[in-house]
Design a protein around this nucleic acid. Structure first.
Lengths: 340, 340
DNA sequence: AATAGCACTCGTGATGATAGAGTGCCAGCC
DNA sequence: GGCTGGCACTCTATCATCACGAGTGCTATT
């Protein structure tokens, strides 16, 4: 592509990102650091339109970059201000430092993404499920309740209050706890369920209710919903192109039915590390052609991994958002890696 | 109020609930079980308007019930179909039965509220915070991690993975666990924090890092966010009176900043048990004049209490929604009371 | 007391004219 | 040959106008 064409594409994109409106040849001629006449620019824009990088909503509107146009801009033309990283770093670090636990870190991360970008911040967690049981213990809580705690090989913990079987004192409980631990040590949830059923049939452990409860738990844990933290949705409505009723509906639906979002987000998973940008139709979410996403993976210690990023209008300033997402992902990884 | 006036108010309200549009005298005259002429009805409607129960958006539109008009309808005119309870009961019970734990029950409840009413279902949890520590225990997890578990006097459990101090074997851990338990047994979170600080200063327990971590935890737990489950928000957008941009924005903001919602919801708390209805401006949420809420308390065992209900358009069929909320609250209470 | 009729008001939707923005193309200029 | 100024053209957004329909309030009538 000729240098002039690149230059003009860049100018059109920049103007579009600022205003969200179609940009005409005159504007480019006047604002840009060039002294080309509108007519010349029109010719170039015509070429760009034929190449599929721009398009006109109608005859006498200016041009708007297509998804491919924006993509070209992001991939080849955009320069990310490197100074920004330094300023961001402190801000993000401070915000995450105050968090108490993993959940808190992720919540704050989504908060921070939202407030830095003024779009919606999104953090998802994958792989948190217990795949392999490392240990299980039963702890007395009161005369009527006991607490069961399962720790996975990934260090993830789940616990639940259970009803204490009648006539089971603390000693018996400790014994049962040991037995259970021997039985279930290092097996998967499915295996755990199977073994518990076998035990129930054999009625070896005498505490049928307890085992039943554990079995139900194992079943439930397998089908648990993935978690997702979203902040700043209302901010999106400020953008008229998103304020369309259909878009809002789809957006809310997407956040509520997390599956679609997660499918998409999994793609980032498969990509190399780094930030991945989806522009307009590049994600396949319907009614969300006006929406872009900037996502990155993070990876804490203990197999806590996931995706975080920003959902905003197609016309966001990718050069500012990209370092924000990148920086946040790095810090989340660092904080989680250090603390958990 | 004269019987005829009540009758006509009722007809207007019913028609309004169906269509959401202003209703004129002719419509009432034709649909209703009366043979009064439109002119007569106009006179009555005029009286009702002066009484503040109806109002006209403009000269030649029909009448719309005011908040007070709807309130009068709900309090005095509405008859709740009692058959509905029986059908609901089975449905709700079945839906909640499948849930694995408290959180699951609440999530399903909000789901069920949303799908039964086609509005947004809302479930909040109060009083789940730990006020008084009943017991604390440290459990070995791996050579590098230990699990700290705090059980409150309300039976609520919180746990957290901590880094195991170097050179602390399982025996030392058990010892420390006992000591801590003696120290912190039956004290409030604030008190727990104070004692831990004192211990740190005296350096009596030798495991400074551990205590520090616990202290941080106590601080974080005090400021923890209340939980809230919302489902079915997108369904609200189907109603044109809610599809207004301002309303949507306020709605999303309200769900995101839970404080306002919770303030409101706390009012239900103070009321006697039963279902409480907020119509339009009766709640003080700005930009949400077109929105009503139907809320009820639930109360499980172990001090798990909260509020649940429905957020929908002002023109909802209160006679159908009311039993749904009521029934759900009862079942949530029952299920949580039985299982926890 | 209820009704019928009528004049009046107001919002809605269609129509048409106008101004403005921006293009495409052509002829001329460097 | 590439760039530019000029011009005709197209399309949209906006506004005023108009007719229509809906519904009311009032008054005369039964």
């Amino acid at each position: 592509m000729k240098q002039r064409h690149e230059y003009i594409l860049g100018e059109v994109v920049k103007a579009y990102l600022d205003t969200g409106l179609p940009v005409g040849s005159r504007l480019v001629s006047e604002q840009g650091g060039t002294d080309l006449s509108p007519a010349t620019i029109r010719n170039v824009m015509n070429d760009l339109e034929r190449a599929g990088l721009l398009y006109s909503p109608h005859t006498s509107a200016g041009r708007v970059p297509t998804d491919t146009g924006l993509r070209y801009f992001v991939d080849s033309l955009m320069v990310v201000d490197s100074d920004i990283h330094a300023r961001l770093d402190a801000e993000v670090a401070q915000s995450l430092a105050g968090a108490a636990d993993t959940k808190g870190v992720l919540r704050r991360a989504s908060d921070e993404l939202a407030s830095l970008t003024h779009f919606a911040g999104l953090v998802t967690v994958h792989e948190k499920r217990i795949r392999q049981v490392r240990s299980i213990s039963l702890i007395p809580v009161s005369s009527e309740r006991i607490l069961a705690v399962i720790v996975s090989d990934a260090g993830e913990v789940q616990n639940r209050l259970l009803v204490r079987p009648p006539r089971m004192d603390d000693a018996a409980l400790a014994l049962a706890s040991g037995q259970l631990n021997d039985l279930l040590h290092d097996c998967s949830l499915a295996e755990m369920r199977r073994r518990l059923i076998r035990e129930m049939e054999a009625d070896r452990l005498k505490v049928r209710e307890l085992i039943e409860a554990l079995k139900n738990w194992a079943e439930a844990a397998e089908t648990e919903e993935p978690e997702i933290f979203v902040r700043g949705q209302p901010q999106l409505l400020e953008f008229p192109e998103i304020g369309m009723l259909d878009t809002v509906r789809s957006l809310m639906a997407a956040f509520e039915e997390k599956e679609h979002l997660l499918d998409l987000v999994n793609e980032v998973e498969r990509t190399e590390t780094g930030v991945k940008i989806f522009i307009g139709r590049e994600h396949a979410l319907v009614n969300m052609e006006q929406i872009s996403m900037v996502l990155a993976r993070y990876r804490g210690a203990e197999n806590v991994v996931g995706t975080l990023g920003v959902i905003g209008p197609r016309r966001m300033h990718y050069d500012r958002v990209l370092p924000i997402v990148d920086c946040t992902a790095r810090w989340v990884s660092r904080v989680l890696g250090g603390q958990l």
